[in-house]
Design a protein around this nucleic acid. Structure first.
Lengths: 335, 335
DNA sequence: TTGTACGCGTTATCAT
DNA sequence: ATGATAACGCGTACAA
């Protein structure tokens, strides 16, 4: 029941600590025989090298921080899966942090990481705040950062995004082709990276098809689902749009709910298309047309970029920007 | 650009490392004045105590491991949110690991944690395998474990579950009351904790209502959605059940899909109720009747149990078993 | 092939 | 209120 560490184990084996250490680190300068003897006794005595002590020496944590606005969100859940799968093949583990779109939390957590806590960071930012100095200090500490989906343009770091502008343009155009004349654009924050780009795609598609632009049709929503349903019920009855382009999945569901309560038939009275990574959209009533991002693949690419710099310090990926394509799935909600 | 640590910082301040250390650890035996001076320079020079060095001394990691079968799953995503919220209030962080229901991964990860890597573990088990010795060794190392939802009965550890038996019984009974005579029971693994309990509730409800039991109606599915749809199409046409009790969310969706492809109307030809934590079930076609577990709350309770033992080593929670109630939501799919 | 000894960055203990 | 120092457990340079 005595504490077991490399020293006690070495004593039990009548060996030095260095030899024991070697047995665990794939060293070559150790006889196969002693190595096996060590490992066998170690297993028996239930010994494993202390990760924190090793890290203190090596400055290698084998750990990645993943920072996302939400977890209970199909897009991020799938992206995390992608990150995890790549991390796994590299023997890395994941420290997960959720910001709830709260900028202060993001800052606090990044600062916390700013001391060798992890080898790298993959994040999708909250999009709030303007002062991104807290991220710059990571650079000094040589902690590589990769952004995915939601990025800060003013920070030089590797980025993985989808072609949101093009998809938004295409989705809006699709609604226009289906006969919509008054299309609402639902956003959560039209000033941050994705909200901005997606709104722009919407605006430009209208312009291209000479549909008059009505500022009021860009509807700013919140992260509170109940509030959104009320807001949308209000706007839908007042502004009477015949189409909805939703830049975020949750707003599409709020629209479904609002339309249901207003007895507004989708797609007859209101056609809808939305960004969404939900895997069961076809089971909805009606099946929802979606712009679907390759969430899993984005996670994979982000992790790959990170490991490239991690494993080859010469590579500077900070100017790399991987752009993946989303897919348009047209279903009943916009037919 | 020189390395910054407590030593260099102390030198710059003309102080000793002890004093600097005190400034960061809420010590009382330090003058407010020097403390402020230290913290100010630290901020300026971007110094933060090294977490790994601190841990090496203290044996406190401020980190929790959370092990789940899946992440892209509404139940687990919400449970993780609950765990994270509690962890956050205690200043703890989360090391997340997904097993994909793979027993070997579960064993490998738990073994990896077996060296002071984290202060505690919250897990929902894969349910595979019989040899749970790898968990026993955690006990020796005093790493507390809390199970939630999917537990190993033979391991003495704190547990948080829902009353699955009762809910399953009630759900099956509900179908019977709606007139179903041949009710299928969909499970993924009828031998593990939750599969077993939920199946038993189903069986007992049949018995109670003197509905003949047909072994073939207990349908063993897999984690592969496509396979499940095929399997279910096959079984639904052959066995012609008039009701489905699905013990897992994903199997309900596979049933929706299969029924759709077979042009089998839900609920007219087939009534369905399922365990599910999906938040938009009312938007499905048809809206799905569910047994909904308090996922978020389960995460909260699990974390609370863990912190109880963590913060008071005298408390032995290993015999505690918190049972929460699920809620039955009856919607169109079973009306 | 194996052993010795130092240092990684921190904090607790003991001194001043 | 502040400083000196040992110890946490490990890996590596160097010695043998």
């Amino acid at each position: 029941m005595d504490k077991i560490n490399i020293k006690t184990l070495a004593r039990e084996l009548n060996l030095s600590t260095s030899t024991v250490s070697r047995a665990f680190n794939g060293a070559t300068d150790i006889s196969q025989q002693t190595k096996e003897r060590i490992l066998s006794v170690a297993r028996e005595r239930n010994y494993l090298p202390n990760h924190y002590a090793s890290n203190l020496r090596d400055k290698k944590t084998q750990t990645l921080a993943v920072i996302v606005p939400e977890i209970a969100n199909d897009f991020f859940a799938q992206a995390i899966n992608g990150i995890e799968d790549v991390a796994r093949t590299h023997g890395f583990y994941i420290l997960l942090y959720r910001t709830d779109d709260n900028f202060d939390r993001e800052v606090a957590f990044v600062n916390y990481l700013n001391n060798g806590k992890v080898d790298g960071i993959i994040m999708s930012v909250s999009g709030e705040g303007n002062d991104h100095r807290y991220l710059k200090t990571l650079e000094q500490k040589k902690v590589p950062v990769v952004f995915f989906d939601r990025v800060y343009e003013d920070i030089e770091a590797a980025k993985v995004t989808t072609n949101d502008y093009k998809s938004s343009f295409a989705a809006t155009q699709h609604l226009i082709e289906k006969g919509c004349k008054r299309i609402a654009c639902l956003v959560i924050n039209k000033t941050i990276s994705i909200g901005k780009t997606r709104t722009q795609g919407y605006i430009d598609a209208l312009k291209r098809h000479q549909i008059p632009f009505d500022e009021r049709l860009i509807i700013d929503c919140s992260v509170n689902d109940k509030e959104n349903v009320e807001l949308l019920k209000n706007r839908l009855s007042q502004l009477k749009p015949d189409g909805v382009f939703s830049s975020v999945q949750r707003l599409a569901f709020a629209t479904y709910q609002a339309a249901y309560e207003l007895k507004l038939n989708i797609p007859k009275k209101l056609k809808l298309i939305s960004f969404s990574s939900l895997q069961i959209t076809p089971l909805l009533n009606p099946p929802m047309s979606t712009i679907t991002q390759p969430a899993y693949q984005m996670g994979v690419e982000a992790a790959k970029l990170l490991f490239e710099t991690l494993e080859n310090k010469d590579i500077d990926n900070r100017k790399k920007h991987v752009v993946l394509n989303s897919s348009l799935f047209i279903r009943k909600s916009s037919e």
